[in-house]
């Protein structure tokens, strides 16, 4: 995967998570729905953010297949 895509995924899922959180608190989205959606989005967000951190070192495709 190219770095740009990872960046895109991280930003989109991050924004969605924040919107969901706000909407959940304002009762625009019901709490269970917000919970389910954030369960699905949280791994996507965290993994892509993590990959972005490590992308500083490897400026190629991330994660590439080693060995």
């Amino acid at each position: 995967m190219k770095k740009r895509y990872v960046q895109l995924i991280a930003i989109i899922s991050g924004i969605l998570l924040i919107i969901l959180s706000g909407a959940g608190h304002q009762a625009i989205v019901s709490l269970p729905v917000a919970a389910v959606l954030s369960i699905i989005l949280a791994p996507v967000f965290l993994i892509s953010v993590g990959l972005l951190f490590s992308a500083e070192i490897t400026d190629g495709d991330i994660p590439f297949m080693g060995y």
């Binding site: 993994i47 500083e56 070192i57 994660p63 297949m65 060995y67």
Partner: peptide
């Protein structure tokens, strides 16, 4: 760990690994 170099070992089953 987040800032370390990361990849997937070649012998691994990629899908499961991630």
């Amino acid at each position: 760990f987040l800032a370390k170099e990361s990849w997937i070992p070649k012998t691994a089953s990629q899908g499961v690994y991630v």
